[in-house]
């Protein structure tokens, strides 16, 4: 069986002013063909004005098993949110 071409993650900016967003992946032997495949696969209907491709192997992800340790501390730091503070109603513009 022939070896698969490397995998690339595809990001599309749908219009000016928005961030690139992950839309899927393609296999390609090099970056140039990855961009072409990404265009044919993910932007056949004006879905974007800009494409990024990134080798999937270059992405480092957090481990879902560590979710609790990674993200929970934020939950007990409610003072990071404006609603934590009680300001009387008659004080305006704050």
């Amino acid at each position: 069986m022939s070896k698969d071409w490397p995998l690339w993650e595809v990001f599309v900016r749908s219009r000016g002013g928005l961030s690139h967003r992950h839309v899927g992946s393609v296999h390609a032997p090099d970056a140039e063909i990855a961009v072409r495949h990404a265009r044919d696969t993910y932007t056949r209907r004006m879905e974007g004005i800009s494409l990024w491709v990134v080798p999937s192997a270059a992405i480092v992800a957090s481990d879902p098993a560590d979710d609790a340790a990674m993200f929970d501390p934020a939950a007990d730091k409610v003072y990071r949110h404006p609603t934590f503070y009680n300001i009387p109603d008659h004080i305006k513009h704050i």
Binding site: S2, K3, D4, G24, S25, V26, H27, R44
Partner: peptide, 30 residues
């Protein structure tokens, strides 16, 4: 032509989704 090209795209989205479960594209095609 556009319709058939869409179907190729559907195949590619789905192969990519299946690959995330640990089976390679090559294995599936084979």
């Amino acid at each position: 032509l556009a319709k058939v090209q869409d179907e190729a795209g559907h195949g590619l989205y789905l192969y990519s989704a299946a690959e995330t479960l640990g089976t390679s594209r090559g294995q599936m095609i084979e």
